[in-house]
Simulated assay, not measured.
Amino acid sequence: MVDKIVPSYCFVKDATYYFSRHVPVDLREHYSTNRIQLCLKTRSPHNAANAVKSINQKLDDYWMALRLSTMDNPALRFLKDRAVKPSAAPLLSEALDTYLRLKGSNKASTFHRGAKRNVRAVIDVLGDKPIDQYRSSDAAAYRDYSLERGLTVASVKRNFSTIRSIINLTLSEQGIDCRNPFSKVFFPELDDVKDRKPIPIDTLRLIQRRSKQINDDRRWLLSLISDTGMRLAEAAGLAKEDIRLDAEIPHLIIQPHPWRSLKTKGSSRLIPLVGQSLWAAKQVLSDSNNTTEFAFPRYTNNSGCNAGSASATLNKWLHNNFPGDYVIHS
């Protein structure tokens, strides 16, 4: 058996590669540790080598910037005005308010929660600065922090996309001429994406049988999506009038509502009801305890549709009662 070659600045633990590098002595006052160690989340020496190369480049650039920041600028004496003017650009939190005001009026609550969550995370790590005061080294530090927390590269890229959009909108609206520091940030190619497989048909039938036995609104919701392929938020946000059992072919009308938008304009459609989903639809309309206009008032009201809560509840039930790591996304 030939041992794998371990790239420089790496060590292997449980077949997974880790990055490790000493902090230079002259910069240790900026760190709480003398060594930087990161899980590269890959078992491939090739991917590890690429990740190490990228991380080292970013560290070298950042450390050079730290060193230069402590040096006197020899050209300062040639400046006409050495006073540094404070930034007039809005804070990141203010840019968020602008973004939600201009783009969030017809968006679902998940749009608002996601934007607020991403901005809050950046502020927690980097501070609430004027948007023209963030640097590319700040964005790189936030990327590394996110990966260290265990987020996948794909998740961090989605978060960065939201932050970029928020900053770009305010830069454009206020005519601020500066580069968005959250653009063109390098992301290592880590083998950290989970391969989620569809639920096997035998397991799906077992879930459907158990759902009929329990016969409550949570199981009706699960049953409704099990035979239709619709998104959980689409089902949780249904109005009773969206369920048409008296038609020649019983069906659901998937359409936007004030309390629940759709993911895309093309998401509006009719979905025929068959098998388990037809049973679930009949249960919903025959529920005498539900006097609202909503099919699932546990998760929906005039203020919005909390599909995230439904997802958490159903996923917990699936994990506790059925084999396999199956997930229902909201």
Rank of each mutant, 00 (worst) to 15 (best):
G104S: 07
A95Y: 00
A83V: 12
D81L: 08
S105R: 07
G104E: 12
L96M: 09
S93N: 05
K80Q: 10
L100C: 13
S109W: 00
S105I: 10
D81K: 12
S87D: 04
F111Q: 03
F78R: 09
P90V: 03
F78V: 08
A89Y: 04
S93I: 06
A89H: 02
R82Y: 06
A95N: 06
T110H: 00
L100S: 13
S87M: 04
G104F: 07
K85P: 02
L100E: 15
D97I: 03
L91R: 06
S93F: 02
E94P: 02
T110A: 09
A89P: 08
G104K: 11
S109P: 00
K107H: 13
K80G: 00
L91E: 03
T98H: 13
L79C: 07
A108W: 08
L79K: 14
V84Y: 02
L91Y: 02
L96Y: 05
K103N: 15
F111S: 03
P86N: 07
E94M: 06
A88R: 12
L79W: 09
V84T: 11
P86G: 09
P90R: 03
E94T: 11
D97C: 01
R101A: 12
Y99L: 05
P86L: 12
E94N: 04
A95K: 01
A83M: 06
S109H: 09
K103P: 03
S109K: 12
S105V: 15
T98N: 10
F78C: 03
A95T: 03
F78S: 06
P90A: 05
S105E: 14
R82I: 15
A83K: 07
D81M: 08
V84H: 05
A89W: 01
K80W: 04
D81P: 01
T110C: 07
F111N: 00
K85N: 08
F111A: 06
L92Q: 06
F78N: 10
E94C: 02
L100K: 11
S87E: 08
L102S: 03
P90E: 04
A108G: 14
S87T: 12
E94A: 10
A88Q: 12
A83D: 00
R101G: 01
L92S: 09
D81A: 07
A88S: 13
S93E: 05
P86H: 10
G104I: 01
K80A: 13
K103A: 11
K107Y: 14
A88V: 07
Y99R: 09
A89M: 01
A89I: 08
G104A: 04
L92Y: 02
K85S: 10
K107V: 04
D97V: 11
K80V: 09
K85L: 05
L91M: 10
D81S: 15
A95D: 03
A95R: 00
S87V: 07
D97K: 14
L102D: 14
